[in-house]
Amino acid sequence: MPEQATETTPPEPMSVPEAADLARRVLDEVERAVVGKRDALMQVLAAVLAKGHVLLEDYPGLGKTLAARSLARTLGIDFARAQFTPDLLPADLTGSFIYDQRRGEFEFRRGPLFTGLLLADEINRTPPKTQAALLEAMQERQITVEGETFRLPEPFHVLATANPIEYEGTFPLPEAQLDRFLLRVSFGYPTPHQEYDVLARRMARRQEEVDLDVVTDGPGLLAMQAAVETVVVDESVGRYCVDLAVATRHHPDVLTGASPRGSLGLVLAARAFALLRGRDYVVPEDVKAVARPVLAHRITVKPELWMSDASGRRVVDAVLGQVPTPATRDALR
Protein backbone atom coordinates (compact mmCIF):
# COMPACT_ATOMS: atom_id res chain seq x y z
CA MET A 1 0.00 0.00 0.00
CA PRO A 2 1.47 3.37 -0.96
CA GLU A 3 2.36 5.89 1.67
CA GLN A 4 -0.45 8.25 2.49
CA ALA A 5 0.03 11.95 2.97
CA THR A 6 -0.34 12.61 6.64
CA GLU A 7 0.72 16.24 6.63
CA THR A 8 -0.81 19.02 4.61
CA THR A 9 1.74 19.36 1.87
CA PRO A 10 0.59 21.59 -0.98
CA PRO A 11 -0.39 19.08 -3.66
CA GLU A 12 1.05 19.34 -7.14
CA PRO A 13 -1.75 20.60 -9.35
CA MET A 14 -2.85 18.22 -12.04
CA SER A 15 -4.34 19.37 -15.33
CA VAL A 16 -8.06 18.78 -15.81
CA PRO A 17 -7.69 16.26 -18.69
CA GLU A 18 -5.12 14.29 -16.66
CA ALA A 19 -7.35 14.26 -13.61
CA ALA A 20 -10.36 13.27 -15.71
CA ASP A 21 -8.40 10.42 -17.25
CA LEU A 22 -7.26 9.21 -13.84
CA ALA A 23 -10.80 9.41 -12.50
CA ARG A 24 -12.08 7.42 -15.46
CA ARG A 25 -9.50 4.70 -14.77
CA VAL A 26 -10.51 4.62 -11.09
CA LEU A 27 -14.16 4.24 -12.05
CA ASP A 28 -13.37 1.51 -14.59
CA GLU A 29 -11.42 -0.37 -11.96
CA VAL A 30 -14.08 -0.03 -9.25
CA GLU A 31 -16.72 -1.09 -11.72
CA ARG A 32 -14.98 -4.43 -12.06
CA ALA A 33 -16.05 -5.12 -8.49
CA VAL A 34 -19.28 -3.14 -8.29
CA VAL A 35 -21.19 -4.13 -11.39
CA GLY A 36 -23.39 -1.74 -13.33
CA LYS A 37 -23.50 1.14 -10.88
CA ARG A 38 -21.51 3.66 -12.89
CA ASP A 39 -23.78 6.61 -12.14
CA ALA A 40 -23.81 6.05 -8.38
CA LEU A 41 -20.05 5.46 -8.37
CA MET A 42 -19.53 8.67 -10.33
CA GLN A 43 -21.50 10.53 -7.69
CA VAL A 44 -19.48 9.00 -4.86
CA LEU A 45 -16.19 9.79 -6.61
CA ALA A 46 -17.40 13.32 -7.37
CA ALA A 47 -18.07 13.82 -3.65
CA VAL A 48 -14.59 12.52 -2.77
CA LEU A 49 -13.00 14.80 -5.38
CA ALA A 50 -14.99 17.72 -3.96
CA LYS A 51 -13.53 16.88 -0.52
CA GLY A 52 -16.93 15.88 0.79
CA HIS A 53 -18.45 12.98 2.65
CA VAL A 54 -21.13 10.65 1.39
CA LEU A 55 -24.17 9.09 3.01
CA LEU A 56 -25.12 5.83 1.33
CA GLU A 57 -28.73 5.12 2.15
CA ASP A 58 -29.77 1.75 0.89
CA TYR A 59 -30.96 -1.72 1.75
CA PRO A 60 -28.50 -4.32 2.97
CA GLY A 61 -26.60 -6.37 0.41
CA LEU A 62 -26.46 -3.85 -2.40
CA GLY A 63 -22.69 -3.42 -2.39
CA LYS A 64 -22.16 -0.37 -0.19
CA THR A 65 -19.22 -1.83 1.71
CA LEU A 66 -17.79 -3.34 -1.45
CA ALA A 67 -17.98 0.03 -3.18
CA ALA A 68 -16.25 1.81 -0.30
CA ARG A 69 -13.51 -0.82 -0.04
CA SER A 70 -12.95 -0.90 -3.80
CA LEU A 71 -12.79 2.87 -4.00
CA ALA A 72 -10.24 3.02 -1.19
CA ARG A 73 -8.18 0.28 -2.84
CA THR A 74 -8.07 1.88 -6.30
CA LEU A 75 -7.47 5.35 -4.88
CA GLY A 76 -4.56 3.92 -2.92
CA ILE A 77 -5.67 5.30 0.45
CA ASP A 78 -6.11 3.59 3.82
CA PHE A 79 -9.43 2.05 4.54
CA ALA A 80 -11.05 1.48 7.93
CA ARG A 81 -14.47 0.24 8.82
CA ALA A 82 -16.35 1.01 12.01
CA GLN A 83 -19.56 -0.77 12.84
CA PHE A 84 -21.79 1.73 14.59
CA THR A 85 -23.44 -0.25 17.36
CA PRO A 86 -25.66 1.21 20.13
CA ASP A 87 -22.84 0.85 22.68
CA LEU A 88 -20.14 2.54 20.57
CA LEU A 89 -18.48 5.41 22.43
CA PRO A 90 -16.73 8.45 20.95
CA ALA A 91 -13.38 7.18 22.29
CA ASP A 92 -13.87 4.00 20.27
CA LEU A 93 -13.70 6.16 17.15
CA THR A 94 -11.15 8.77 18.06
CA GLY A 95 -8.79 6.61 20.12
CA SER A 96 -7.71 7.26 23.67
CA PHE A 97 -4.74 7.68 25.97
CA ILE A 98 -3.40 4.47 27.41
CA TYR A 99 -0.86 4.33 30.21
CA ASP A 100 2.43 2.78 29.12
CA GLN A 101 3.83 1.21 32.28
CA ARG A 102 7.32 0.64 30.86
CA ARG A 103 7.85 4.30 30.04
CA GLY A 104 5.61 5.60 32.76
CA GLU A 105 3.61 7.91 30.55
CA PHE A 106 0.32 8.13 28.65
CA GLU A 107 0.43 7.23 25.01
CA PHE A 108 -2.24 8.08 22.46
CA ARG A 109 -3.61 5.06 20.65
CA ARG A 110 -5.31 6.13 17.44
CA GLY A 111 -8.85 5.04 16.64
CA PRO A 112 -10.35 4.14 13.27
CA LEU A 113 -10.85 7.84 12.41
CA PHE A 114 -7.17 8.05 11.49
CA THR A 115 -7.53 6.69 8.01
CA GLY A 116 -8.04 7.82 4.43
CA LEU A 117 -11.50 6.44 3.85
CA LEU A 118 -13.72 5.49 6.75
CA LEU A 119 -16.75 3.33 6.22
CA ALA A 120 -19.16 4.21 9.02
CA ASP A 121 -21.54 1.30 8.82
CA GLU A 122 -25.14 1.87 9.98
CA ILE A 123 -24.45 5.29 11.41
CA ASN A 124 -28.04 5.62 12.63
CA ARG A 125 -27.65 2.75 15.13
CA THR A 126 -25.32 4.65 17.41
CA PRO A 127 -26.46 7.24 19.97
CA PRO A 128 -26.24 10.96 19.13
CA LYS A 129 -23.13 11.46 21.28
CA THR A 130 -21.02 9.22 19.05
CA GLN A 131 -22.68 10.52 15.89
CA ALA A 132 -21.78 14.05 16.94
CA ALA A 133 -18.15 13.05 17.52
CA LEU A 134 -17.91 11.61 14.03
CA LEU A 135 -19.66 14.53 12.37
CA GLU A 136 -17.41 16.98 14.17
CA ALA A 137 -14.36 15.13 12.92
CA MET A 138 -15.84 15.23 9.41
CA GLN A 139 -16.33 18.96 9.54
CA GLU A 140 -13.20 20.08 11.39
CA ARG A 141 -10.91 17.32 10.08
CA GLN A 142 -9.37 17.21 13.54
CA ILE A 143 -10.23 15.69 16.89
CA THR A 144 -9.56 16.73 20.44
CA VAL A 145 -8.93 14.12 23.13
CA GLU A 146 -8.27 15.25 26.70
CA GLY A 147 -7.36 18.73 25.61
CA GLU A 148 -4.95 17.61 22.93
CA THR A 149 -5.82 18.22 19.29
CA PHE A 150 -4.89 15.80 16.55
CA ARG A 151 -5.18 16.61 12.87
CA LEU A 152 -6.69 13.86 10.77
CA PRO A 153 -4.71 12.68 7.77
CA GLU A 154 -5.42 14.13 4.35
CA PRO A 155 -7.27 12.96 2.39
CA PHE A 156 -9.95 11.98 4.91
CA HIS A 157 -13.39 10.96 3.72
CA VAL A 158 -16.33 9.27 5.35
CA LEU A 159 -18.73 6.97 3.59
CA ALA A 160 -21.55 6.43 6.04
CA THR A 161 -24.33 3.94 5.46
CA ALA A 162 -27.85 4.02 6.83
CA ASN A 163 -30.62 1.53 6.50
CA PRO A 164 -33.79 3.32 5.35
CA ILE A 165 -36.32 0.69 6.50
CA GLU A 166 -35.44 -0.11 10.10
CA TYR A 167 -36.57 2.33 12.77
CA GLU A 168 -36.51 0.10 15.83
CA GLY A 169 -33.53 0.96 18.02
CA THR A 170 -32.14 3.58 15.66
CA PHE A 171 -31.27 7.23 16.15
CA PRO A 172 -32.12 9.03 12.93
CA LEU A 173 -29.60 11.75 12.10
CA PRO A 174 -30.93 15.23 12.80
CA GLU A 175 -31.20 17.57 9.81
CA ALA A 176 -28.32 19.71 11.05
CA GLN A 177 -26.05 16.68 10.89
CA LEU A 178 -27.37 15.35 7.61
CA ASP A 179 -26.33 18.71 6.19
CA ARG A 180 -22.69 17.75 6.76
CA PHE A 181 -22.87 15.10 4.06
CA LEU A 182 -22.17 16.52 0.63
CA LEU A 183 -24.20 13.83 -1.11
CA ARG A 184 -26.72 11.21 -0.23
CA VAL A 185 -26.47 8.41 -2.75
CA SER A 186 -28.62 5.37 -3.27
CA PHE A 187 -27.34 2.38 -5.24
CA GLY A 188 -30.66 0.65 -5.78
CA TYR A 189 -31.25 -2.88 -6.93
CA PRO A 190 -29.42 -4.09 -10.02
CA THR A 191 -31.30 -5.18 -13.13
CA PRO A 192 -31.67 -8.97 -13.55
CA HIS A 193 -29.02 -8.84 -16.25
CA GLN A 194 -26.55 -7.04 -13.97
CA GLU A 195 -27.39 -9.36 -11.08
CA TYR A 196 -26.55 -12.38 -13.20
CA ASP A 197 -23.35 -10.64 -14.23
CA VAL A 198 -22.40 -10.45 -10.54
CA LEU A 199 -22.97 -14.20 -10.20
CA ALA A 200 -21.11 -15.05 -13.39
CA ARG A 201 -18.09 -12.97 -12.42
CA ARG A 202 -17.97 -14.57 -8.98
CA MET A 203 -18.00 -18.05 -10.58
CA ALA A 204 -15.33 -17.08 -13.05
CA ARG A 205 -12.83 -15.73 -10.53
CA ARG A 206 -13.22 -18.67 -8.08
CA GLN A 207 -12.69 -16.58 -4.98
CA GLU A 208 -14.62 -14.06 -2.93
CA GLU A 209 -12.34 -11.03 -3.27
CA VAL A 210 -11.83 -9.07 -6.44
CA ASP A 211 -8.20 -8.15 -7.04
CA LEU A 212 -8.26 -4.50 -8.01
CA ASP A 213 -5.30 -2.52 -9.27
CA VAL A 214 -4.13 0.54 -7.40
CA VAL A 215 -4.64 3.41 -9.85
CA THR A 216 -3.34 6.32 -7.79
CA ASP A 217 -2.31 7.16 -4.22
CA GLY A 218 -2.97 9.72 -1.49
CA PRO A 219 -0.93 12.53 -3.12
CA GLY A 220 -2.51 11.63 -6.47
CA LEU A 221 -5.97 12.04 -4.98
CA LEU A 222 -4.96 15.37 -3.44
CA ALA A 223 -3.70 16.52 -6.84
CA MET A 224 -7.03 15.54 -8.39
CA GLN A 225 -8.82 17.50 -5.69
CA ALA A 226 -6.56 20.45 -6.48
CA ALA A 227 -7.56 20.11 -10.14
CA VAL A 228 -11.24 20.37 -9.13
CA GLU A 229 -10.40 23.71 -7.55
CA THR A 230 -9.35 25.02 -10.98
CA VAL A 231 -12.76 24.28 -12.52
CA VAL A 232 -14.54 27.59 -13.10
CA VAL A 233 -18.20 28.37 -12.47
CA ASP A 234 -19.85 31.05 -14.55
CA GLU A 235 -21.83 33.58 -12.56
CA SER A 236 -25.10 32.57 -14.22
CA VAL A 237 -24.53 28.94 -13.18
CA GLY A 238 -23.69 29.96 -9.62
CA ARG A 239 -26.86 32.00 -9.46
CA TYR A 240 -28.80 29.05 -10.83
CA CYS A 241 -27.50 26.96 -7.88
CA VAL A 242 -28.63 29.64 -5.46
CA ASP A 243 -32.04 29.88 -7.14
CA LEU A 244 -32.51 26.13 -6.80
CA ALA A 245 -31.65 26.17 -3.09
CA VAL A 246 -33.90 29.18 -2.48
CA ALA A 247 -36.76 27.55 -4.38
CA THR A 248 -36.65 24.54 -2.04
CA ARG A 249 -37.34 26.90 0.86
CA HIS A 250 -40.53 28.23 -0.76
CA HIS A 251 -42.00 24.94 -1.91
CA PRO A 252 -45.45 24.38 -0.30
CA ASP A 253 -44.57 20.88 0.99
CA VAL A 254 -41.40 22.01 2.74
CA LEU A 255 -40.89 22.80 6.41
CA THR A 256 -37.17 23.60 6.13
CA GLY A 257 -35.46 23.99 2.79
CA ALA A 258 -31.82 23.65 1.82
CA SER A 259 -29.39 25.89 3.69
CA PRO A 260 -26.68 28.02 2.04
CA ARG A 261 -24.49 24.99 2.66
CA GLY A 262 -26.81 23.29 0.19
CA SER A 263 -26.15 25.78 -2.60
CA LEU A 264 -22.42 25.67 -1.81
CA GLY A 265 -22.54 21.87 -1.97
CA LEU A 266 -24.31 22.13 -5.31
CA VAL A 267 -21.51 24.21 -6.79
CA LEU A 268 -18.75 22.03 -5.30
CA ALA A 269 -20.30 18.76 -6.45
CA ALA A 270 -21.09 20.19 -9.91
CA ARG A 271 -17.44 21.21 -10.28
CA ALA A 272 -16.23 17.70 -9.48
CA PHE A 273 -18.83 16.29 -11.84
CA ALA A 274 -17.63 18.60 -14.62
CA LEU A 275 -14.08 17.36 -14.04
CA LEU A 276 -15.23 13.75 -14.30
CA ARG A 277 -16.62 14.68 -17.70
CA GLY A 278 -13.31 16.24 -18.68
CA ARG A 279 -14.33 19.90 -18.57
CA ASP A 280 -12.70 22.79 -16.74
CA TYR A 281 -16.00 24.68 -16.58
CA VAL A 282 -19.41 23.87 -15.13
CA VAL A 283 -22.51 23.77 -17.32
CA PRO A 284 -26.10 23.89 -15.99
CA GLU A 285 -26.53 20.19 -16.86
CA ASP A 286 -23.84 19.34 -14.28
CA VAL A 287 -25.87 21.13 -11.63
CA LYS A 288 -29.00 19.27 -12.68
CA ALA A 289 -27.13 15.97 -12.53
CA VAL A 290 -26.05 16.45 -8.91
CA ALA A 291 -29.06 18.40 -7.62
CA ARG A 292 -30.95 15.37 -6.32
CA PRO A 293 -28.16 13.75 -4.29
CA VAL A 294 -26.98 17.14 -3.01
CA LEU A 295 -30.30 18.72 -2.03
CA ALA A 296 -32.83 15.96 -1.28
CA HIS A 297 -31.47 15.06 2.18
CA ARG A 298 -31.26 18.70 3.24
CA ILE A 299 -35.00 19.24 2.87
CA THR A 300 -37.47 18.55 5.67
CA VAL A 301 -40.96 17.89 4.43
CA LYS A 302 -43.90 19.14 6.52
CA PRO A 303 -44.77 16.50 9.13
CA GLU A 304 -48.48 16.53 8.28
CA LEU A 305 -47.60 15.14 4.84
CA TRP A 306 -46.16 11.94 6.28
CA MET A 307 -48.89 9.85 4.73
CA SER A 308 -48.51 11.30 1.24
CA ASP A 309 -45.55 10.54 -0.98
CA ALA A 310 -44.03 13.98 -0.47
CA SER A 311 -40.26 13.70 -0.03
CA GLY A 312 -37.13 15.75 -0.43
CA ARG A 313 -36.47 14.03 -3.70
CA ARG A 314 -39.86 15.01 -5.10
CA VAL A 315 -39.35 18.57 -3.98
CA VAL A 316 -36.02 18.72 -5.81
CA ASP A 317 -37.65 17.31 -8.94
CA ALA A 318 -40.41 19.91 -8.72
CA VAL A 319 -37.88 22.69 -8.22
CA LEU A 320 -35.80 21.51 -11.19
CA GLY A 321 -38.98 21.73 -13.27
CA GLN A 322 -39.64 25.32 -12.25
CA VAL A 323 -36.47 27.31 -11.75
CA PRO A 324 -35.36 29.13 -14.93
CA THR A 325 -31.97 27.98 -16.22
CA PRO A 326 -29.16 30.36 -17.26
CA ALA A 327 -29.86 32.38 -20.40
CA THR A 328 -28.57 31.17 -23.75
CA ARG A 329 -26.46 34.28 -24.24
CA ASP A 330 -24.68 36.13 -21.53
CA ALA A 331 -23.49 39.69 -21.94
CA LEU A 332 -21.04 39.49 -24.84
CA ARG A 333 -17.43 39.20 -23.82
Binding site: V283, P284, E285, K288, L320, G321, Q322, V323, P324, T325, P326, A327, T328, R329, D330, L332, R333
Partner: peptide, 28 residues
Protein backbone atom coordinates in the same frame (compact mmCIF):
# COMPACT_ATOMS: atom_id res chain seq x y z
CA UNK B 1 -19.44 35.32 -29.32
CA UNK B 2 -19.88 33.91 -32.82
CA UNK B 3 -20.41 30.34 -31.55
CA UNK B 4 -22.86 31.48 -28.87
CA UNK B 5 -24.76 33.66 -31.34
CA UNK B 6 -24.94 30.80 -33.84
CA UNK B 7 -26.36 28.44 -31.20
CA UNK B 8 -28.82 31.08 -30.05
CA UNK B 9 -30.04 31.36 -33.64
CA UNK B 10 -31.31 27.77 -33.53
CA UNK B 11 -33.43 28.74 -30.56
CA UNK B 12 -34.87 31.76 -32.36
CA UNK B 13 -35.67 29.67 -35.45
CA UNK B 14 -37.43 26.93 -33.50
CA UNK B 15 -39.35 29.47 -31.43
CA UNK B 16 -40.48 31.18 -34.65
CA UNK B 17 -41.75 27.81 -35.86
CA UNK B 18 -43.87 27.52 -32.71
CA UNK B 19 -41.65 25.35 -30.54
CA UNK B 20 -40.76 27.59 -27.63
CA UNK B 21 -38.24 26.76 -24.90
CA UNK B 22 -39.52 26.04 -21.39
CA UNK B 23 -37.83 28.23 -18.77
CA UNK B 24 -36.58 25.23 -16.77
CA UNK B 25 -34.95 23.69 -19.82
CA UNK B 26 -31.30 24.53 -20.37
CA UNK B 27 -30.38 25.96 -23.74
CA UNK B 28 -28.37 22.88 -24.66
Amino acid sequence: NAVVACWDRFETQAAAAGLARSPWETSA
